[in-house]
């Protein structure tokens, strides 16, 4: 999990951010990679997340909450990325009248059918599955991250798994 204890020290913000990055970046990049299927993009998103959180460090009352903030920020940035990408794709399709691929063709995950199907899921279903089965978060905590109700999380998980299984059975 992203959980690590963050020691609040009287350091320059950059130094403190650097320390936090060393402690949390690995986990955050992995989460972002699972969400996006793109390693470069995952690193960019995590850096953006750290930059976003930098100005809040001074006001962070509970240092243990940093990983939760970071997780939520990474998921939100990934969702924003997909929203932007959808808009761009719609624009390009209007211009070229040709569909664009769901996942980058050079992504090594393309070799794996389950991985490909996971990446092809709607982003909220995919995020719910990753938070549940990679981060091992409860439905309540997933709901906190995604900003929805636990019932919605249950539904996202159920539909996501259904689609994955459908694919695995040769849908």
């Amino acid at each position: 999990m992203l959980s690590t204890t963050v020691e609040v020290r009287e350091e320059e913000e950059g130094g403190r951010l650097g320390t936090l990055y060393r402690r949390h970046a690995d986990r955050a990049i992995r989460l972002a990679y699972l969400l996006t299927g793109d390693r470069g993009l995952a690193e960019d998103l995590v850096q953006d997340a750290f930059v976003k959180l930098a100005r809040r460090l001074a006001h962070l009352r509970d240092p243990d909450a940093f990983d939760a903030y970071l997780r939520r920020t990474v998921v939100n940035l990934a969702n924003s990325h997909f929203r932007r990408k959808r808009l761009e794709r719609a624009y390009v399709e209007r211009l070229k009248q040709a569909p664009s691929p769901e996942v980058e063709a050079d992504d090594p995950g393309m070799r794996d059918d389950l991985w490909r199907r996971l990446q092809a899921l709607p982003e909220r279903q995919r995020a719910a599955l990753i938070l549940r089965f990679y981060e091992d978060l409860s439905e309540q905590r997933i709901a906190d991250v995604l900003g929805c109700r636990p019932g919605t999380v249950k539904s996202l998980l159920s539909r996501g798994l259904e689609r994955l299984r459908g694919g695995m059975r040769g849908e």
Partner: peptide, 29 residues
């Protein structure tokens, strides 16, 4: 699914130290 996620995540190399451009951006922000 768990194994896939775990395997994919662990296939990434360690992140290393904080990139300087990111720290500069953070300081500017």
């Amino acid at each position: 699914l768990r194994e896939l996620l775990q395997g994919k995540a662990e296939s990434l190399p360690p992140a290393g130290p904080a990139p300087r451009p990111m720290l500069r951006r953070a300081r500017r922000r």
